[in-house]
Amino acid sequence: MNPEIIETNLDDYKKLVESFKTEGFEMMVDLTAVDWFRKKEPRFEIIVQLLSTIHNERKTIKVFVNDEDLTIPSITDIYPSANFYEREAYDMFGIIFSDHPDLTRILMPDDWQGYPLRKNYGSGRIPVQFKNAPKVD
């Protein structure tokens, strides 16, 4: 097992991130989600990449989100750089980050329906509008 990868649960997640911050991991470089649709239970996994420039070390935190409420505490108060990444995860996967200062869609239009990077969201489900194309009902 790679010591850089830490799997945790939802209750300890925020405490763990906070303890890493005090240990000298001063930068949160990446936060993303993976949709394990029909492969794993629970469905969504959040992956956080931390970087310590003092120790020259990386840590990967993996945590699964409950299927019922899809809610996970936000870490923007610990690492402000998580702001855009959490908005992106909300936009693409529909995961709700509680206590996030501005949890809105970031890449997709505000009125968009659905979450594009979910596995059950087929690409090409929205037909492309070509000029003078015959209308399909």
Binding site: V29, D30, T32, D35, I47, Q49, F84
Partner: peptide, 23 residues
């Protein structure tokens, strides 16, 4: 950065790029 999850097939199960400009 690039984060790839593989499920053993010939396509990435998830491909995420951590762009520096975004951050």
């Amino acid at each position: 950065g690039c984060y790839i999850v593989s499920d053993g097939s010939s396509k990435p199960y998830r491909m995420h790029v951590r762009g520096p400009s975004f951050c």
